[in-house]
Design a protein around this nucleic acid. Structure first.
Lengths: 229, 229
DNA sequence: TGCTCATCAGCTGCCTGACAAGTTAGCCGG
DNA sequence: CCGGCTAACTTGTCAGGCAGCTGATGAGCA
């Protein structure tokens, strides 16, 4: 009945986890509903109990199901509430890049309001480090990441900073599809430097709106540089 | 050597996953490093291979390790990049509530630029539904969630909408600690209705800045109503 | 010497069967 | 009718084994 034994996209456990997730996402299995027992699932999908356990373990870590020894497995009260996951197909999505731009702009706006002297010094240092890296012939990718993290740090909101790092990493992966290295040939790395300076200036003048606009321009320019706009 | 067999915080697999996560987070195990084999880990921590497999499966779904059949398990290139997870202790954090306010404001700003007639109709319908629910003596919690989701939908960015739902759920959990039901006694549910109307108006006039401010005021008022500001 | 290729040890993926521990429902005796 | 006990579930854990894949080793050949 099942095709799990025939096609194997990844592993049996992954496939089964995906299969079991559907009724939960679709709402066919409501919160607090009991899932079939591991034994029943193993029989139904023609896999061993170990595979079922691994699939359920994955759904557990994602917060979709909860298990209690002796009682069974249940759909969690708030399915999917523990982790925010980006689909693989979503990488490279323009919506993802836009979300990153919004978050970074929020970081800049908050940074404009709350930054300390130390934050400004760190921002300048990060910008200088990137300029040096570019001057030495590198791409300055690590330094660019560092600059944006320092900006997020200046917003003084750890949750925001963590999410900015998370979304930024995915957005960068998406952009790498567009051949980062060719930026070097076109000598456009200097543009980035100038945009970073504009962000620092907007933040230093404690102008949230200007900081937001500076970041939005910076991200949009990045997309244009990568031919993604 | 190990205490896993003595104390059991949750399950052996959970405990082992936590144990194995530490060297990764601390940087002792660098990306692309190979983990000890399942057999070696089972011997080292005095558990069965099934427990080791389940622990590693959990680290896999969180994106900390990758496994390849015949080669072994390796620290992922970008540990923790696949899922954004909120610690339990973070619920109720003011930083989390602020992050939610930023995201909702972004939703409103985008909605102001991109909303369609249908979006406006849905917004009004959601607002009406909440007013009806309150009129009938309810709290209108479900309807309130619906209103904010419709607003996020009007931004026409699925990734943003998903994250808004994710962060909103956590923020609501945090606020429930502050006894939502006492809002009813103080007859403050009408305030929410008015603030929703203000958001709808700002969106309908296609004024991103006004929409952003309207949401920020709405969230801040919500915090004040719950005594969290 | 240098190259090719078969063999093999080790690893993960998966399976089977079993026991331990917790829960629940029903039966039985009072 | 009620309370306690048992039996039949459930998940958690264990042991052992086979299959498929990988990398290295070493024999054989040019």
């Amino acid at each position: 009945m099942s095709t799990l034994t025939d096609i194997r996209p990844t592993s049996r456990a992954d496939a089964l986890a995906e299969t079991l997730l559907q009724p939960i996402l679709a709402g066919d299995w409501r919160p607090h509903d009991r899932l079939p027992s591991e034994h029943a699932l193993a029989a139904q999908y023609e896999v061993s109990r170990a595979v079922v356990r691994e699939a359920i373990a994955r759904l557990k870590t994602d917060g979709y199901v909860e298990t209690r020894q002796g009682k069974g497995a249940f759909v969690a009260a708030a399915p999917g509430a523990t982790a925010f996951r980006l689909d693989n197909g979503e990488a490279g999505d323009t919506h993802l890049l836009e979300l990153r731009a919004l978050i970074e702009a929020d970081c800049a706006a908050l940074a404009a309001e709350r930054h300390t002297i130390l934050d400004l010094e760190r921002l300048c240092a990060a910008s200088d480090a990137m300029r040096d890296a570019v001057a030495k012939g590198g791409l300055g990718l690590e330094e660019d990441i560092r600059f944006h993290d320092v900006l997020a740090q200046a917003a003084h909101n750890p949750a925001l900073r963590r999410f900015a790092a998370f979304i930024g990493r995915h957005a960068r992966e998406a952009m790498q599809l567009a051949r980062l290295s060719r930026l070097k040939e076109q000598n456009r790395l200097a543009e980035i430097e100038g945009e970073h300076q504009a962000i620092i200036f907007a933040v230093s003048t404690r102008d949230p709106q200007a900081a937001r606009l500076a970041v939005q321009y910076h991200i949009a320019s990045g997309l244009r540089r990568h031919g993604l706009s």
